[in-house]
Design a binder for these strands. Structure first.
Length: 417
RNA sequence: GCGAUCGUAGCUCAGUUGGUUAGAGCACCGGUUUGUGGUACCGGGGGUCGUGGGUUCAAGUCCCAUCGGUCGCCCCA
């Protein structure tokens, strides 16, 4: 350690919006992933892996007209060959591309699930990072409302098994088929145009770029106009009505609670029919915990055959933040305090024996011998085993929390004599 | 891109209307006359107060700039 500041090497700063995780939060993160992996198997969803990097066109084309997102929110760069590459900002487009590239039509309807890091060039805030992580589930090649319902039942079960279903609400809407959607959109534009004098500046801009988005504006000036805007219901075709009815009937039959939110919309044109979000008020401004919908137009927009598909994604960080404090138990079964260095070999034999028998254990054998007991106690294992030399003979003492695991650890350790 | 707020020890934070050598807890290291206890007690090391300017007899404290963090807006695939 040099005290010469002139020679001090400056530590590179982490990239904005990235995070390092240690211990508890990393364990909670992994618990979410493990639970998802277990539940998705129950529903017969296959594991799928797609690249973190794709040609920019994969996302630019799927996102279509929303130039703001493409130009400002994507992590894009040129590789050495001059090709524009983008770090995936979502799973869906990459999976759709893979579906086409590999001819997975042959497996339709295909139920797949994945999870991993995603990247968006955004200003970080609570529950929102530049590198973040999602769970993802998709059903490709099915135009059945049963697929929508099954995905929602899967989501519902996931949240219940994570123990966070309390305080999280499934909100549901339909965007109808292409015909319904166009009619509704035209009616909304007309409604907002009539009231354009009362809209916020932001919503005036939305009126040109993305009129549906005015419906979920947070600006109080917009609320009366948004709330009095027509619902899509009057514009739904018979087929679109039937589709939505079948989805909700499926949810009811499976015992999934839901609420209609006629203001829930999607900005992108390829969305059809079902749109949904599981929301909570426990995460500040970023209240969506899991969201998705039907995107029957996407695969075609990527140059594939017309293919119906539906899916959702959920933020792992956000789910991990909602877990109860005691959701993940990382306590060790045993910790061994070596209070005399002459006992080190004995302690190591015991440690190995415990671990061989699936008993999690650690050892404290460094620093001042008389402090090792305290150090070990602070680790908070189920059993605290101390080993010292007393009257020239090894002496083992154990304090346990009364649990079976602790008793087993003590018995095993004492068995080495 | 915009706004608010915060940057003091490895970590979490005190630090009064500007006024001596900048403090605490945790962590780390050492000590506390062989002990079924000791998650304790005592001591020690560690800080050019984010960085750069400015105001002042005097700046952690006030002003400006800059770089970061946090929260919100825009956007949200």
């Amino acid at each position: 350690m040099s005290k010469d500041r002139a020679k001090k090497i400056p530590t590179p700063q982490p990239v904005r919006g990235t995070q390092d995780m240690l211990g508890d939060f990393a364990d909670r993160f992994q618990h979410v992933v493990d639970t998802f992996d277990r539940v998705r198997r129950l529903y017969g969803f296959k594991r799928v892996e797609v690249p973190v990097i794709e040609p920019t066109a994969v996302f630019a084309r799927s996102l279509g007209e929303t130039t703001d997102v493409v130009s400002k929110e994507m992590y894009s760069f040129e590789d050495r060959g001059g090709e524009s590459i983008t770090l995936r900002p979502e799973f869906t487009a990459g999976i759709a591309r893979a579906y086409i590239s590999n001819g997975w039509q042959q497996f339709a309807p295909l139920k797949v699930a994945t999870h991993g890091p995603l990247f968006r060039y955004e200003r970080p805030q609570k529950g929102r990072y530049r590198q973040f992580h999602q769970l993802d589930a998709e059903v490709l090649g099915s135009d059945s409302p049963l697929a929508d319902a099954e995905l929602l039942v899967l989501a519902d079960q996931l949240l219940k098994e994570l123990g966070i279903a309390e305080g999280v609400t499934l909100t549901l809407n339909t965007l109808g088929d292409a015909e319904s959607r166009e009619a509704w959109r035209a009616a909304l534009v007309e409604h907002f145009t009539v009231h354009r004098g009362e809209l916020s500046e932001d919503s005036l801009a939305r009126l040109d770029k993305n009129p549906l988005r005015i419906l979920d504006s947070k600006d109080p000036r917009d609320r009366p106009i948004a709330d009095s805007a027509p619902d899509i219901d009057a514009f739904l075709t018979g087929a679109a009505q039937d589709f939505f009815g079948a989805v909700t009937a499926g949810l009811d039959a499976a015992g999934v609670a839901w609420e209609r939110n006629a203001r829930l919309v999607r900005g992108l044109d390829y969305y059809r029919h079902t749109a949904f979000e599981f929301v909570t008020d426990r995460l500040g401004a970023q209240g969506t915990v899991l969201g998705g919908g039907r995107y029957d137009g996407l695969i075609e927009a990527l140059g594939g055959p017309p293919t119906a598909a539906v899916g959702w994604a959920a933020g792992i960080e956000r789910l991990a933040m909602l877990l109860a404090d005691n959701a993940v138990d990382t306590r060790l079964d045993a910790v061994i305090a070596v209070e005399d260095d002459a006992m080190f070999d004995l302690a190591m034999r015991g440690l190995r024996l415990l671990r061989d028998n699936r008993v999690s254990a650690d050892i404290v054998a460094t620093g001042s011998p008389r402090k090792r007991f305290d150090k070990a106690a602070k680790i908070g294992a189920r059993a605290l085993i101390s080993i010292s030399l007393r009257d020239g003979a090894p002496f083992t003492n154990a304090k346990t929390d009364g649990s079976e695991a602790a008793a087993r650890a003590e018995a095993l350790f004492r068995s080495i004599g």
